[in-house]
Computed example of a mutant assay.
Amino acid sequence: MYRSWWKILAASLVIYATVAGFLMPVPRMAILNETIRNLYFHVPMWFAMIVLFSISVWYSVRFLASGKESDDLRAVESANTGIIFGLLGLVTGALWAGYTWGEFWSFDPKQNFAAIAVLLYFAYFVLRNAVDEEQKRGKISAIYNIFAFPMMVVLLFVLPRLQDSLHPGNGGNPGFNSYDLDSRMRLVFYPACLGWILVGYWVYSICFRLRSLENKDIH
Rank of each mutant, 00 (worst) to 15 (best):
Q111L: 05
F113Y: 10
A114K: 06
A115S: 09
I116R: 01
A117S: 07
A117W: 02
A117H: 01
V118W: 11
L119T: 14
L120R: 03
Y121Q: 15
Y121P: 07
Y121G: 07
F122I: 09
V126F: 15
R128S: 13
R128F: 06
N129R: 11
A130L: 13
V131E: 00
V131A: 02
Q135A: 14
Q135S: 12
K136N: 06
R137G: 12
G138A: 08
G138P: 06
K139W: 11
K139I: 08
S141G: 10
S141Y: 01
A142Y: 10
A142I: 05
I143Y: 15
I143C: 08
N145L: 12
I146A: 05
I146F: 15
I146D: 03
I146R: 02
F147R: 04
A148C: 03
F149Q: 02
P150L: 14
P150D: 06
M151G: 04
M151D: 02
M151R: 05
M152S: 02
V153T: 15
V154Q: 11
L155E: 00
L155H: 00
L155V: 01
V158H: 09
R161M: 08
Q163V: 09
Q163L: 15
S165H: 05
L166C: 13
H167L: 01
H167F: 03
P168Y: 15
P168D: 04
G169R: 03
N170M: 15
N170F: 12
G171V: 06
G172K: 13
P174T: 11
P174R: 03
P174F: 04
G175V: 05
G175C: 13
F176G: 15
F176S: 09
F176T: 07
F176W: 14
N177L: 13
Y179Q: 14
Y179R: 14
Y179M: 13
D180Q: 15
L181H: 05
L181S: 07
D182Y: 03
D182V: 14
D182K: 12
D182G: 06
R184L: 08
R186T: 09
L187H: 11
V188N: 01
V188L: 06
V188F: 10
V188D: 00
Y190I: 03
Y190S: 00
Y190F: 07
P191Y: 05
P191W: 11
A192I: 08
C193F: 13
C193E: 11
L194T: 04
G195R: 01
I197E: 02
V199A: 11
G200Y: 01
Y201D: 10
W202M: 08
Y204R: 04
Y204T: 06
C207N: 10
E214S: 12
E214Q: 11
N215F: 13
